[in-house]
Nucleic acid binder design. Structure first.
Lengths: 223, 223
DNA sequence: ACCTGAACACCGTTCAAGT
DNA sequence: ACCTGAACACCGTTCAAGT
């Protein structure tokens, strides 16, 4: 049997910056980023709004901290499995984490500076690639390429207007019916690919990731 | 000599949905997405706030429309140059447009459904790839991969805390000084790569794009 | 058809005050 | 050191009304 109230709240020992950020992430996950107001956040933490300002400068600092907290959840690359496997695992972890906090990528353009979790992650990734035989330039190329792909893929995934295979099916159906004349290629793709029972958007993720990792491997092997 | 006032405003003929969206894009470009309020937008359009609701249902519809308007600015693929060149040009156009409206990608996760400009663009891209010999499955893979890369790259680009090469240099300098001990690989990359005079973040874009297009070309050639 | 005024239930944040 | 009350200048949006 647990103690008193909801987890991670422990209502009345003094607030900390970390507790504020933790509450903000939980609130955004549960009720959407638009419900993340300083006033709602204070209520969840069982304080009055002004109490928050003792621990963070303003709402922007909360948003910055939330993004960094999310990046801190992503697994660091495993140094013992070779760069390619390590990058594949890390990319999968990043996707999982970013889908769990679907508001995070939309906050990136509001972020003023990368946080320490973000920098630590980047440092570990670069180290893993250098260990794997990448030159410093190639490691720079690789990080930018892999991360762009992962972020962009998840951005498409969270902005898709459906969350389940059934909804995907219905949406594709609607495209075929509504817009088959105006957008024939799109309709063909919906009918002959997306609507097939074996279609799974997640498989697209691995297709692109493998193409990228194979391409990098060839370039590294070629020197 | 122009007529009376600022362009695209023409203060007093009746508002239209398109004029509302045009004003919203201009306002977000000039003063940032946080300045985009229904009240500010009404002022720019020389109306009272409530006038907007005669042309759009609510603010969410404005945001959806803005994203679709931005997608409408991206060049459609050129059917006469081969799929690879067409995709390279289109990706470059998308990057340019998305950098011109840096708030657009951050709005994607709030979007409820793709608009017609987005669908038209996607349709043209699929058509271009099918013409180039892609199967419907390969075209699906290719669209998802290329678009993920372009969006993700630009997302990194707009969230970088600097806008000019000079600022990049200063920021990299700061990383080396502040965090050289804690993040040695990052510091090495900053010192030995990013801080070199010939470094240019834009070149990273072409590196990754070419790797992706070459990989796709090999797969298509192999059947 | 198109626009407006007044009002409601919210925001983030300042400033001065309480323990 | 940590928290609060009252206030200010904002939000998006409803409803009823004006031309």
């Amino acid at each position: 049997m647990a103690t008193t109230s909801k987890p991670a709240q422990r209502p009345r020992d003094p607030l900390t910056r970390d507790r504020v950020l933790e509450g903000a992430v939980a609130l955004a996950d549960e009720r959407g980023i638009s419900a993340l107001t300083m006033r709602n956040l204070a209520e969840v933490l069982d304080r009055k709004p002004m109490a928050l300002y003792h621990h963070v400068a303003n709402k922007d600092e909360v948003l910055d901290g939330m993004v960094d907290a999310v990046f801190g959840e992503i697994d660091l690359p495993d140094d013992s499995v070779g760069w390619k496997t390590a990058m594949r695992q890390r990319a999968g972890s990043a996707r999982t984490v970013l889908l769990r906090h679907p508001w995070a990528l939309g906050l990136m353009d509001a972020r003023t500076a990368p946080g320490v979790a973000t920098l630590r992650h980047l440092d570990a990734v670069i180290g893993c690639l250098l260990d794997g035989g990448f030159s410093i330039e190639m490691a720079g190329h690789a990080v930018s390429l892999i991360d762009a792909y992962v972020y962009g893929f998840v951005l498409q995934e969270v902005s898709l207007p459906f969350d389940t295979p059934e909804e995907t099916h219905d949406a594709a159906d609607a495209v075929v019916e509504q817009a088959g004349d105006e957008f024939p290629h799109l309709a063909a793709m919906a009918a002959r690919y997306v609507l097939q029972p074996e279609y799974n958007f997640e498989d697209e993720f691995h297709f692109g990731l493998d193409l990228i990792l194979d391409g990098l491997e060839q370039m590294v092997a070629a020197g």
